[in-house]
């Protein structure tokens, strides 16, 4: 029990530190990738290849004045970014990240500790993660309503619209893979796909994968669906009045959600952390997550964003019927 407890604590600390740091590194990657796709250079001045731009941005964020507008509801205004960041990390706690491993005894103090692949192995992990990420949208909603700013209110209204649009599609799209595997645990999903590339669920459920990816983009407010803070229309939406570290917390939450969606997609549809030929499991899932992260940036560079009413129309009149038909066909095939 002790070995597992120490391992779990190590895992929690690692996940918090690495994912929070990845949010900073993610901004650098995003700017570089977008720049190359748009034939620019991106950050180049600070450090080699502009790498130290992250540090410069961090210093700016940390030292900026923490500003609360005059008529804002102070308590809710201060709480909202915490909701976004906290729910993003709580959602991550039920996602398996790497294969379980034991720290070698040679390392002092923590040697022999078993680091589990998932912090909290609840057997309904998929629903828990999606529910928690849904709760994360309370951050933008509360932020927009509390800041006494018209753009903020529009951002909050769009948050509600977006939530009511994508949530049904997410749930229905993963229902078909759940029926195939017969379990809601992400570990079971991983174990069901141990037979190499041919056993990946994406080959059996390509439609579900595309639907899940589209809903995931809406869930993380990535570009085709970044209605909440689209600069060209609503200044910065829910984040208009935020500055400094509170704005940074929204940012960390968004990047943690991107990583969670990338992890979910690679575990549910692409075999998770099972070894891939000569590639060990931890490297395989790292490559998959990196690919999905890159895909999000790629889409951002390629597609314009859509209107809120178009999003709702798209989700309810196009994606939801396709998801229901997909479930019915899957059910019939399983019955036969």
């Amino acid at each position: 029990m002790d070995a597992l407890l120490i391992g779990t604590v190590i895992k929690i600390v690692l996940v918090l530190a690495i994912v929070a740091a990845l949010a900073g590194f993610g901004t650098y990657l995003e700017r570089k990738v977008l720049a190359f796709m748009q034939r620019r250079l991106g950050p180049t001045h600070v450090g080699p290849f502009g790498l130290l731009q992250i540090v410069a941005d961090g210093i700016k964020l940390f030292t900026k004045e923490d500003f609360i507008p005059q008529n804002a509801n102070k308590f809710i205004f201060m709480m909202a970014p915490v909701v976004t960041a906290a729910t993003a990390f709580i959602a991550l706690s039920a996602v398996p990240l790497f294969p379980t491993f034991t720290i070698p005894d040679a390392i002092p103090f923590i040697g022999g500790a078993i680091v589990p692949s998932v912090i909290a192995d609840i057997n309904v992990a998929i629903l828990f993660v999606l529910g928690m990420m849904g709760a994360g949208l309370y951050g933008p909603l509360l932020a927009g309503m509390a800041q006494a700013n018209k753009w903020g209110i529009i951002g909050a209204a769009r948050t509600a619209v977006q939530f009511l649009s994508y949530e049904v599609v997410t749930g229905l799209s993963i229902l078909a893979p759940i029926m195939l595997v017969g379990s809601l645990s992400l570990i079971d999903f991983n174990n069901a796909q141990t037979g190499g590339i041919g056993s990946w669920i994406v080959w059996q459920q390509p439609v579900a994968f595309v639907l899940f990816l589209i809903a995931g983009f809406a869930e993380t407010n990535r570009t085709p669906f970044d209605l909440l803070e689209h600069e060209a229309e609503v200044v910065s939406g829910y984040a208009t009045e935020y500055s400094g570290l509170r704005w940074g917390m929204f940012f960390i939450g968004e990047y943690a959600n991107m990583i969670t969606i990338a992890l979910l997609a690679s575990i549910i549809f692409f075999g998770g952390f099972t070894p891939l030929g000569f590639i060990p499991g931890w490297l395989a899932i790292l490559l998959k997550v990196t690919f999905f992260f890159f895909l999000m940036l790629w889409v951002r560079a390629s597609w314009p964003h859509i209107r809120p009413d178009q999003l709702m129309w798209f989700c309810w009149k196009v994606l939801m019927p396709i998801a229901v038909i997909n479930i019915i066909i899957t059910g019939i095939v399983i019955m036969i």
Binding site: I122, V124, F128, G131, L164, E167, L184
Partner: peptide
């Protein structure tokens, strides 16, 4: 009762969101 807990979470997060609207 993990499943009921998650259902409580998913259902009421959505329901109260509509109240906010």
């Amino acid at each position: 009762a993990d499943f009921l807990g998650v259902v409580q979470l998913v259902v009421y997060v959505g329901a109260v969101m509509a109240l906010y609207a």
